[in-house]
Design a protein around this nucleic acid. Sequence first.
DNA 1: AGGCAATGGTAGCCTAGGCAACAAGCAGGC
DNA 2: GCCTGCTTGTTGCCTAGGCTACCATTGCCT
Lengths: 141, 141
Amino acid sequence: MMRAAFDRRVRRLGLTRSQWLVLSLLHRRPGVSQSELAEMLEVERAAAGRMVDRLERRNWLVRRPDRLDRRVNRLYLTAEADAVQAEMGRIAVELLDDAMAGLGAEEREALSDMLERVKAQLQGMSPRAASSPDARPGLSP
Amino acid sequence: MMRAAFDRRVRRLGLTRSQWLVLSLLHRRPGVSQSELAEMLEVERAAAGRMVDRLERRNWLVRRPDRLDRRVNRLYLTAEADAVQAEMGRIAVELLDDAMAGLGAEEREALSDMLERVKAQLQGMSPRAASSPDARPGLSP
DNA sequence: AGGCAATGGTAGCCTAGGCAACAAGCAGGC
DNA sequence: GCCTGCTTGTTGCCTAGGCTACCATTGCCT
């Protein structure tokens, strides 16, 4: 429902929530590879790749080959994307605020905290959990 | 992540979480129409219709015409669907329990309650909110 | 140097959902 | 009776994601 609400609100900008997540991430870390992007978004490489396809087709970002490793594409936002990115961020905050209108400050804190814990739990049972480099994924080591 | 985790667990049964939601609902209320189904699942009529397509194609349910209103299809589970439905329910409960393993009983209660409130808030701003029959959709009556 | 495993990216097939346009059917007003 | 408007369902086009198989490249190890 959050996704749907967000998409409804930013439709006029010609983007979706998922696309905004990419833009936002690329704004903070320009030059990441597609694999890195996929991992950060917690999504399959294929899905990330197609996302990049769509965004590139609409000129929101550019693929540029890495000079050291010919396999990887480094991703960079275009100027327009950089411009719209902030606006989307504002909308995201607004939506979050509206959605939690019925909750007090401590409740929001608690909700956020609990969801983080649930997320960690779910991450621990995801197939991608095995390759965690340093974090202990299991629950009973 | 919940959806993904659930789908991973029930894959061997040849179904998905969304499909299970339909089966579960139809088990409790056989003979609902597609529109009713869509509303109960909080999904567009088109999406519900395609869902029914897939489930019918795989013989999990049957469309039967209503005798009074030739527009509507009434939906009924097949025997196999009825059988597998309970199993899926058990898996759902298990998953929920696993996901909230890091939370105490009161926390779970609180989380559930808060999410309900957030959901209500989001429902109030959805486009389908206007046609609510009795409930007041606004936030400050 | 050569081979082999790991990594990055892509394409194919699938489910899932949104929005819009449409046809068929129903119901109420005149 | 007839027309007008609403409801039900379907179809088309779109994004989004999962899984698998595959190709190219890289890097390690012998």
